[in-house]
C-alpha cells in the first residue's frame, strides 16, 4: 500500500508551511492542536462541529478535493466525545427533560467520516474504527485489505483525536496524565504519567507505486501486558519484514510514563546500538491515535532524508533514510508496529 498525499494538524506547525525545528511548549500538561481556518464548510455546519470533527475536516477535505477517493476510513478513539459530554450533561442537569438533539447526533464517533462524505458527496466505502489505541492501525488494515487485489482504488485513511473534557478528566483520574509534566522534560522527568495531546493526520493511499511518497510494507497490532510477549512479537515482525537495518530509523512512541518506558527500551535493544532512535510524543503529547502522526512524520523523514535533532534520542550518523519502523503502544496494553519505506 502506497501513500500519495497527506495532511497533518498537530500542536506544531505541520499544516501548510511545515516547521519542526522550533517546537511549541505544552501548558498545564496539554499540547493543543493548532487549527487552520476551515474552507469549504458551510458556516452553520462549522458552528456545530467539535474540535475533533473540525480537525478531521481540516485534514480530510483538502485531500478529498484533489483526489477521487473510493472511500473514507477513519480511526478515532473518541470522535465526537466533546458533544457526547455536552449531551450527557444536559441529561443529568435537566433531569431527562426536553433536550435539543444536535449534540446527540454529533456525538457519534462516525461524525468525522460521515461529515466528510456528506460535504464531498462521497458514497463509497465508509468506516469508523474506534478501538482506542489501535483505532488508526485498524483503519490502515482496512484500507490495505480494500486495496489488495484492487490496486487502482484510492482511499482516504486517517486518525483523529481531541483533548475533550470527557476524556481528559477521566484519564487524569485514572492516572494517565499529569498536569505538571511538560514536553520540555518529557523523557527525563521520570514519573508514572504523561502529557495529553491531540491531532489529525490523513493520507491518500492506493496500490500504485508511481510517484508515491512512501510505502506501508506492514502493519501489526495486538494486545498484551507481558513485556516478553511484546519483544517476541517485535522480533518476529523485524525478522519477517525488516531484516536489514541500514539507513533505518526506529520511531518510538515513548511518552515519559515510566511504567511504559521499559517496553520501548526493550524493543530498541533488539537492534543493539545499530539503529538511530527517534521519538515524537514531545511534539504531539499522548492520544490514542498518535500513531497517525508517527506515520506522517515517517513520510516527512523520508522526504527530507532526516529529522530535526530534537527528535533523536541519541547520537547518530544517519545520512540517508530509507526505512522507518514505528512502535507505538497505548496504556501498556495495545501495541502496534508499522513498517514504512521509500
Amino acid at each position: 500500500m502506497y501513500i500519495h498525499q497527506h495532511t497533518c494538524i498537530s500542536p506544531q506547525q505541520t499544516n501548510g508551511l511545515i516547521q519542526l525545528e522550533e517546537i511549541s511548549i505544552s501548558a498545564d500538561g496539554k499540547l493543543l492542536a493548532k487549527e487552520p481556518v476551515l474552507e469549504g464548510v458551510p458556516p452553520a455546519m462549522l458552528r456545530r462541529m467539535s474540535k475533533a470533527v473540525r480537525m478531521g475536516i481540516g485534514t480530510g477535505l483538502p485531500l478529498l478535493k484533489n483526489n477521487v477517493a473510493d472511500g473514507i476510513i477513519i480511526g478515532t478513539a473518541n470522535g465526537g466525545m466533546e458533544d457526547c459530554i455536552i449531551f450527557l450533561n444536559q441529561i443529568v442537569d435537566y433531569e431527562e427533560g426536553l433536550l435539543a438533539p444536535a449534540a446527540f447526533v454529533q456525538s457519534t464517533p462516525n461524525a468525522i467520516a460521515g461529515q466528510l462524505s456528506l460535504i464531498t458527496k462521497n458514497r463509497g466505502y465508509n468506516a469508523t474504527h474506534v478501538h482506542n489505541g489501535l483505532a488508526f492501525e485498524n483503519a490502515l488494515l482496512d484500507a490495505q485489505m480494500l486495496i489488495s487485489g484492487h490496486s487502482h482504488k484510492s482511499y482516504l485513511v486517517g486518525g483523529v483525536d481531541e483533548i475533550s473534557s470527557y476524556n481528559y478528566n477521566i484519564d487524569c483520574l485514572a492516572g494517565w496524565y499529569s498536569k505538571i509534566k511538560t514536553n520540555k522534560h518529557l523523557y527525563t522527568d521520570k514519573t508514572p504519567a504523561t502529557i495529553a495531546g491531540e491531532g489529525a493526520a490523513m493520507f491518500i493511499v492506493n496500490g500504485s507505486p508511481v510517484n508515491a511518497l512512501a510505502q506501508i510494507k506492514a502493519v501489526s497490532l495486538f494486545h498484551s501486558t507481558d513485556p516478553g510477549t511484546v519483544v517476541g512479537r517485535f522480533k518476529d515482525f523485524i525478522a519477517e519484514w525488516a531484516p536489514v537495518a541500514d539507513n533505518t530509523i526506529f520511531l518510538s512512541g515513548e511518552n515519559g510514563d515510566l511504567r511504559q518506558t521499559p517496553l520501548y527500551e526493550s524493543c530498541e535493544e533488539v537492534f543493539g546500538s545499530a539503529i538511530p532512535v527517534a521519538r515524537f510524543k514531545h511534539v504531539t503529547g499522548e492520544y490514542p491515535t498518535a500513531s497517525s502522526f508517527a506515520l506522517w512524520l515517517a513520510c516527512y523523514a523520508l522526504k527530507e532524508q532526516n529529522l530535526p535533532p530534537h527528535f533523536y534520542k541519541n547520537e547518530h550518523n544517519l545520512s540517508q533514510v530509507d526505512r522507518i519502523i514505528i512502535y507505538n503502544q497505548y496504556q501498556g496494553m495495545q501495541h502496534s508496529f508499522i513498517f514504512v519505506t521509500q
Binding site: 467520516a113 468506516a127 469508523t128 474504527h129 474506534v130 482506542n132 489501535l134 497490532l221 494486545h223
Partner: peptide, 12 residues
C-alpha cells in the same frame, strides 16, 4: 486472551 487482531467499529 485473544492473540490476534482486535478491533471495534462504531458506525452507529
Amino acid at each position: 486472551g485473544i492473540g490476534g487482531i482486535v478491533n471495534t467499529f462504531n458506525t452507529a
